[in-house]
Simulated scan of single mutants.
Amino acid sequence: MGLDLFAGLPVGDYAGALDWYGKLFGGPPSFVVSDTEAVWELADHRSVYVEHLPGRAGGAMVTLFVDDLDERVTAASARGVEPSSRETYANGVRKVVYVDPDGNEIGFGGAPVAV
């Protein structure tokens, strides 16, 4: 069975979200659906979108597992976006969490660091 992911993040400030998520994901949206919704395709069939929904903004929690966690964090930092927290679980899996201006949490998880 194939699997597609289309995760939505409600935001209060659409223009601000375009800027912030552009810095987090490394570029502009893959496509703009309307004047209130934009989509970043992060991998084949795996997308995150922001939508201007002020009354619902701030409660989303999304975690994406990636092969290049350290590189992503370094690149986002170079673009001016810093994580709000970092964790390493007992099994060595790492998670870095970013919080957008509305309070939505975007986490990136990665395998333990090779020794």
Rank of each mutant, 00 (worst) to 15 (best):
G80S: 04
L53G: 01
V66F: 10
R79Y: 12
E37M: 10
S34V: 05
G58R: 00
L69N: 08
V50Q: 01
T74S: 13
A43S: 13
T36N: 14
A43G: 10
E37S: 14
D67K: 02
D35Y: 01
E82Y: 08
S47E: 10
M61Q: 09
V50M: 07
T88R: 12
A78K: 14
G59Y: 02
S34N: 13
R46F: 14
R72L: 15
P83H: 12
A76W: 01
T88E: 15
V73A: 11
E71S: 13
V50R: 07
L64W: 09
L53I: 10
G80C: 09
E82I: 00
D70V: 04
S47V: 02
F65H: 06
E37G: 05
P54K: 00
D35V: 05
D68R: 04
P83M: 11
V81H: 10
V81T: 09
W40L: 08
V39F: 12
E41A: 05
G55M: 03
D44M: 04
G55W: 04
R46Q: 15
T88P: 10
A57L: 04
G80M: 05
S84P: 00
E87W: 04
A90T: 15
S84A: 14
G80I: 09
V50P: 15
S47C: 12
E51R: 11
A90H: 02
A57F: 08
T36P: 01
H52R: 13
H52Q: 15
Y89V: 03
E87I: 07
E82Q: 14
A76I: 00
H45I: 00
V81Q: 06
S85F: 02
M61P: 00
P54I: 01
D70G: 10
V48T: 09
D67I: 01
T36Q: 11
L69E: 09
S85D: 15
A57R: 00
D44A: 11
H52S: 15
V62D: 01
S84M: 10
R86M: 08
W40C: 06
H45N: 14
P83I: 01
T63G: 08
E87H: 14
E71I: 00
E82M: 11
V81P: 07
R79P: 04
T74C: 06
A60V: 10
R56I: 00
R86Y: 09
V81L: 13
T74Q: 15
